[in-house]
Amino acid sequence: MSASVFVTLETALGAFTVELFADRAPLSVANFLAYVDSGRYDGSSIFRIVNPDNQQAEDPVRISVIHGGTRPLAADNLPMIALETTAQTGLSHRHGTLSLGREEADSAEGDFFVCIGDQPHFDHGGARHPDGLGFAAFGHVCAGMDVVEAIWACAGAEEYLAPDEEIVIVRAYRQPRSL
């Protein structure tokens, strides 16, 4: 059996599929799949779209991502998980990489982001997070990157979208076979 798992996220703007690297980032993949399998992503949204133009001025590192899933600290989120750094997994934040959001180390829940362009400052030792531990890359978009880029193109003047402008994630589900 392959260590990769495939998940499709159907959004209001179209679908994209991610390949998850369970052999390299088992905790992060298991966490993401727990949200998928429990239906917690169904009806959630892409609620933040960041580009260099709408990013907060005090942020020292310019990023480009779409950010969605469940909101941090939502009452029905699953328990937080340990951080699997890119130093541990050997993965890196490149164009299309899927990664878990976090505030502190070991605080990832159900929110995730997809990189637009290479984003090495999210890797272990990178400058995006003050602790230098980086973020947990655990997969990549393998189909529908045009949809991800169309979502990214919906960025507004602010990083966080107004509730009525969020991009709905209609449903998320495992693919029955590899793509």
Rank of each mutant, 00 (worst) to 15 (best):
V29G: 05
A30G: 12
A30Y: 06
N31Y: 13
F32N: 11
F32W: 13
L33T: 08
L33R: 07
A34W: 11
A34L: 02
V36G: 05
V36W: 10
D37K: 12
G39W: 11
R40W: 02
D42T: 12
D42F: 08
D42S: 15
G43V: 07
G43T: 13
G43S: 14
G43E: 10
G43M: 08
S44G: 09
S45M: 11
I46W: 15
I46M: 12
F47Q: 13
I49M: 04
I49Q: 10
V50L: 08
N51T: 10
N51Q: 09
P52G: 11
P52A: 07
P52L: 04
D53V: 05
Q55A: 02
Q55M: 07
Q55H: 12
Q56A: 09
A57M: 05
A57H: 13
E58A: 11
D59E: 07
D59A: 05
P60G: 10
P60M: 01
P60V: 01
P60Q: 08
V61K: 12
V61Y: 13
R62E: 04
S64F: 03
S64C: 05
V65F: 10
V65I: 03
V65S: 01
H67D: 07
H67F: 03
G68N: 09
T70E: 13
R71L: 13
P72N: 13
P72R: 14
L73D: 15
L73W: 14
A74C: 05
A75R: 10
D76R: 14
N77A: 07
N77S: 11
P79G: 14
P79I: 08
M80H: 14
A82F: 07
E84N: 06
T85K: 01
T85I: 02
T86W: 02
T86M: 00
Q88H: 03
Q88N: 06
T89C: 02
G90K: 03
G90P: 07
G90T: 04
S92H: 12
G96C: 06
T97H: 10
T97I: 05
T97N: 04
S99N: 09
S99C: 06
L100H: 15
L100S: 04
G101P: 05
R102G: 00
R102W: 10
R102H: 07
R102V: 00
E103G: 13
E104D: 12
A105E: 05
D106V: 01
D106F: 02
D106P: 08
E109N: 09
D111F: 03
F112N: 08
F113I: 00
F113S: 00
V114E: 00
V114Q: 03
C115H: 06
C115W: 02
C115D: 03
C115I: 00
